[in-house]
Design a protein around this nucleic acid. Sequence first.
DNA 1: TGCCCCCCTG
DNA 2: CAGGGGGGCA
Length: 846
Amino acid sequence: MPDHDSDSLLNRQTKRRRVDIGVKRTVGSTASSTAAATTTTTTDNIARAKAAIFSAMNSLSSHSHHGSDTDSMECSVVQPHGGPGVVSASDSESKSNVLRKLLKRANSYEDTMMPFPGTTIISQLLKNNMAKNGGPERGERGDRGDRGDRGDRGDRGDRGDVGFPGSGLSNASSDAPQEDACSNSSHDSTPQECLSPFGRPPGLATFDIERLNDEHLRAKRARVENIIRGMSHSPSVVVPAASRHEREHEMDRDREMDLDCPPPQSQQQAPSSPRGGEVCSSSSRENKRKQRLPQQQQQSFTQLVCQRKEQKQEERRQLKLQLEDMQKQLRQLQEKFFQIYDSTDDSEHNDLHNDLHNDIGNMSEDSPARSDTGGDDRGGDDLRSDNEMSDLDPGHFLDRARALLQEQAMLAAREKPRREGLSRSKGQGGPGSSMHAEGKQLAETLKQELNSAMTQVVDTVVKVFAKPPRPTPQQAFPSLSIPPERFPTTVNGDNPNFHTTNQRLQCFGDVIIPNPLDSFTSMPGMPGPTNDQTEAIPLVVRKTPSEHHHHHHHQSSAVGAHGGHHHPVLHPSSLSASMGFSPPSFRHPFPLPLMGYPFQSPLGGPTGGYPGKDRSSPDSMDLSRETTSLRTKMASGHHMGHHHRSCSPAHPGSTAEGLSLSLIKSECSDLQDMSDISPYSGSNIQEGLSPNHLKKAKLMFFYTRYPSSNMLKMFFSDVKFNRCITSQLIKWFSNFREFYYIQMEKFARQAINDGVTGVEELGVSRDSELFRALNMHYNKANDFEVPERFLEVAEITLREFFNAIVAGKDVDPSWKKAIYKVICKLDSEVPEIFKSPNCLQELLHE
DNA sequence: TGCCCCCCTG
DNA sequence: CAGGGGGGCA
């Protein structure tokens, strides 16, 4: 039977035969997962993402139809990039607080000052402004411009703006907006699903209530988009798509909570897009919107428009009143100041006066630029009138406030002409009355605070609202921030999406997203207010397509859709250079101290304190010798050959890139592992498996064919274990077994071919071919005395194979399984000497 | 789902 | 020997 001699036939026969003996092995606590355990493919992720989008879409639609406030709250205004809006909110709030503090001090100085009616002026104004802005037009230009040609994965596109990978994870965790889903599904030939929620009513049979809901929805959307555009000021500013989506969801909630605010005339501009230049990319979306506007709705829409106008009038009146209040208070404040210093300190007053003038002048300088860029694309020109100032962006309001201040200052200056021309030198007045000194001090303080406050306010406003045009959506995320004050009905702090976004930020450490809060807090240190716009850009690491693909592939292949804790190589320079600190939202995948880990020789520091388990001080010297010899061997470089040991950092020949990629691929990049490993840098604990470890493992195979993870840890105590190391060791033994069983089967068949009829004739001795083959494999140098027990086990194994083949059991695809079960019980105890890291020296020198 | 196994391929 | 796929098991 010559067939049995053929290895190829043997392979063919065993091919596809699953022989899982199901050996239950004690797994150590740190024992873990092989890289091959995750077999999720990219397509799987995509499919999951789609499913998640659709499910989220359906749930959202049901919520909106049922008027669930809380649920739609989750979709309120959120910056998927970490919330510039939140930042600007806190920032402007702090500024306004400064103002308030100022006024409060003046108030306490003389209790005639009226308290401000609102909590914060700016926030109030922003609120009002926001509430009015939605109507006349809808800022579809900016956001849709970059989204129309997005790929088949809208979610990916959204996250991609800020470098988020279009992973199933993000898809699943994010509330997929309907329009986004629509965009996606349009490419997937499943448009019905996305239209179902709000979608075009199926013909004329739609109920009026649904139409009204649709009306409201679009109106809200128009409002919000208009707000966004109003803030952008620049025609080319792009609204991050994700932001817009979430804002759309916020509108759902608005519809419930803010019904008294009728929708604007937004639908008018749907057919007539103001900017044709960007229509091309956004035409598809616009068509969608047009389709969603049935003709039957025009009538109700007109009513809504009228309502809207009334509402606007009312709000304008209120804003005017508020303006007058503020004006009045400003006047009072200045009068108080002047009264205080009028009779005693002309120079101080003059100083203050001049300072005020300077401030006003400075503020007025930058205001026109911002105002010109802002609102230039507004649809309603009449909105620029003073009465409708509130319809403009907050910048206009600030301009107005500045003008008032200037007016007051000039008025006050004219009232006291005699102070003009006096010296402004400080302390000139000399020690006068206590009132005088106190007044001076107060004046100084007030001047400084007012100066700084106003400067900061102006800078902040300019920063937030006069961001430069972002040509690509990838750059757009920090540019458009929606101060939460603009959404009075949205409690930004409780926004679940915000948290989700932050969590996402935490998860995707590879995505370098500057925390806008940090940008603002660090703003005073910025070179100048005019350079602010370029500050945020370098903080964004835009993923190149290759990077993106790499990340995506890696994530899908290595972790599937669950983990996502994989950190591709990023550009540390881009971040660390521009940020002297790590913002909370950014998590460096490879902390720089740890990044050096793979590149430093694990044998580099033989003199560290050895935290080993069962080692005495004399062994340390041996270990040092061993590591030294290892280092020498590896420095020679002929050990590794062509083998690419991804998990072993002990290969100086590997390039940094290769190592990084290997680390990523092999889950050695696990941060926990890295952080666990790093303390061992410089110690005698090796972070990787060396050729000697392989040799040792082979020798151990003579005793145990199925070592447990704990056993491996015990016998490789000089290796810092992690999942990768464990997997590699397990893989080693798996490969050993493979070779072992192949040899057994081969020799069993050979014996059968040789006419052996009984197992009694089969024996394994040190002279047998089988043993030589095995010894050549596991003990090539033959410098280790193979235990007798191994010969017995080999004989048993050979006989098992022989019997099985003779009995014709090899026709069973899993016929080896029974043999494996038998063999796995034949493991013997590994000598204690193998636990010593320098066992090789001791063993091989015997 | 994680872990481990075997099987196959390079 | 490593990588990856497929499968079993808890």
